[in-house]
């Protein structure tokens, strides 16, 4: 089924078309949400909200942009709203991270394969540091960087999703990388991994 056919059938209320749309774009939406939220369960929840919004607002979809661009836009907006609505999560997240790292240490001592446990622990710590650095970026930089890195979108595709010029996206990603490097260098100096 082509994109136009899917949209047409969706507008006629076809469940089969909706299933096809979900099967085709599930990975794209979940990955985009994950790039912003850094939590698999939250990313899946928000991805479901995205598809529900798509199902409800498909009548107003105009075929002048691609389905994927439309999905990216909804996914980004939903994820940003989720972050804004869950600022309190930060506190719980830090608590959760502490528990996770403690669990990792516990697993390290209880499992026989300590090399493997060391590797996992280091990776977890690296992931936490990276997520913290990405989360501290300004919203626009975070969106552009996440779409570029997690979804491998080109600057042109990101410019369509974010409704900005290609040069603005270039500048956003350049600044995002600089900020990330600064934060990761500080962490490296403090030996937080």
């Amino acid at each position: 089924m082509t994109e136009a056919e899917i949209i047409e059938k969706l507008q006629n209320g076809s469940e089969q078309a909706f299933k096809e749309l979900v099967d085709k774009y599930q990975k794209l939406v979940v990955n985009t949400c994950f790039g912003m939220l850094h939590d698999k369960d939250d990313a899946e929840d928000v991805a479901q909200d995205v598809f529900i919004e798509v199902f409800r607002s498909v009548q107003s979809f105009r075929a002048d942009s691609k389905i994927s661009t439309w999905l990216y836009r909804i996914a980004v907006n939903r994820s940003l709203n989720f972050i804004r609505d869950n600022k309190k999560r930060k506190w719980f997240q830090s608590l959760d991270d502490t528990v996770k790292s403690k669990n990792a240490i516990f697993e390290k001592f209880t499992s026989g394969d300590s090399d493997d446990a060391d590797f996992n622990l280091e990776n977890n710590q690296r992931a936490n540091v990276l997520h913290e650095a990405i989360n501290s970026l300004p919203e626009n930089q975070k969106v552009a960087f996440s779409l570029n890195k997690y979804e491998d979108l080109s600057y042109k595709e990101i410019s369509e999703v974010m409704d900005l010029s290609v040069s603005s996206i270039e500048s956003l990603i350049h600044r995002a990388k600089k900020n990330l490097q600064k934060k990761l260098y500080t962490c490296y100096k403090k030996k937080c991994i």
Partner: peptide
Amino acid sequence: LKKTLGIIEKEKT
């Protein structure tokens, strides 16, 4: 830095 940035590739679903 290479190891930390490499986490992104591992995280992709």
